[in-house]
């Protein structure tokens, strides 16, 4: 079952079509990547899903029912890109306050806060103030307050910014853990290597519109250029076979070739075997998400231009 369905969502501001007819759906337990360059409309899209903004048009369906911001708020955990905490408030009180605003009972909130604090090695923090914490520590606290009320849908906007590799891995493991326990996660970022590592499904948004939608592997297949890397035990053979492939790059012990789409791998391998070369490895070079991202976004103006819209 799809946990979240978004259909034809639109939000126009005075000078921009921030979100212009976007539809997608996320199935339960998925880690969903929401990608896009700066100003693509990701934050606006997320703000509509979290009930901060009302859409101008379109529908949001959560767990099969139309999304109702007042009652469904407890099912969603949102960690915005710009982190915010009250600087002068004690950490325990602050986390408790945010949990209670989400509808948790005080006793339950304290209990689950204690569990989370000890899991992330934050036990000694309770009576400290936020201004005493480093940026990375604040990030951890923010993460805890986001997931504390056991939301069905967790929305994380750039969750790793400012975290060192150790804490980054700690949070990453928690994200996998949450997904395994049935939570659905929307992960918004422009760090592509993390997306490849974490996400099952992604969409790419640019200028308010969805331009890509699919699984990470599927999208890579769609954008593949039939590039292969062949390494040899000795020097690569100098034989050319224009009817099968073209050589893109040659080094002392390897070739990068682009084969014609209709040619099979066996035909290529047969060519080299017939030439008597000792093949060590044969790999397909799939484009990285980073390449796909850049290719898709390139050519469009880097910053969004302001347009005049009629209200």
């Amino acid at each position: 079952m799809d946990l979240l369905q978004v259909a034809h969502l639109k939000k126009y501001f005075a000078t921009q079509k921030a979100v212009d007819d976007i539809s997608f759906s996320i199935s339960e337990g998925q880690i969903f990547g929401l990608l896009g360059p700066n100003g693509a409309g990701k934050t606006t899209l997320i703000r509509m899903i979290t009930g901060i903004f009302y859409p101008d048009a379109g529908t949001i369906t959560l767990e099969g029912h139309p999304f109702d911001p007042v009652n469904d708020i407890g099912k969603i955990g949102y960690m915005p890109e710009e982190r915010g905490l009250y600087k002068k408030m004690k950490i325990g009180e602050q986390a408790l306050y945010l949990a209670q605003l989400k509808g948790l009972k005080k006793r339950d909130a304290i209990e689950s806060l204690k569990t989370w604090f000890s899991r992330l090695q934050m036990d000694s923090w309770w009576n400290k103030k936020v201004e005493d914490l480093s940026k990375g520590m604040q990030q951890k606290l923010q993460f805890v307050t986001t997931v504390l009320h056991q939301p069905r849908l967790i929305i994380l906007d750039e969750p790793f910014s400012g975290l060192d590799p150790v804490n980054s891995n700690l949070i990453k493991d928690e994200i996998f853990n949450l997904a395994r326990n049935g939570a659905t996660i929307i992960f918004s970022t422009h760090r592509m290597e993390q997306v490849e590592e974490i996400c099952d499904h992604i969409i790419l948004v640019n200028k308010g519109q969805k331009i890509l939608d699919g699984t990470v592997q599927g999208i890579k297949q769609d954008f593949k250029e039939h590039l292969y890397k062949i390494s040899f035990a000795g020097t690569p053979p100098q034989t050319a076979a224009p009817e099968l492939f073209t050589v893109k790059q040659a080094s002392s012990d390897a070739l990068v070739i682009q084969k014609h789409p209709e040619v099979s791998n066996n035909q290529v391998l047969a060519h080299f075997l017939n030439a008597g070369s000792a093949i060590e490895s044969f790999n397909e070079l799939l484009p990285s998400l980073n390449d796909i991202f850049i290719r898709q976004v390139e050519g469009t103006p880097l910053a969004r231009q302001f347009q005049t819209l009629q209200d």
Binding site: T50, V70, I76, P80, E82, G84, K87
Partner: peptide
């Protein structure tokens, strides 16, 4: 102003109106 500049407003308004 404090809530706005601390960016906590966005977190709070995802829980309350």
């Amino acid at each position: 102003m404090e809530e706005k500049t601390n960016r906590i407003a966005e977190i709070i308004v995802s829980s309350v109106k």
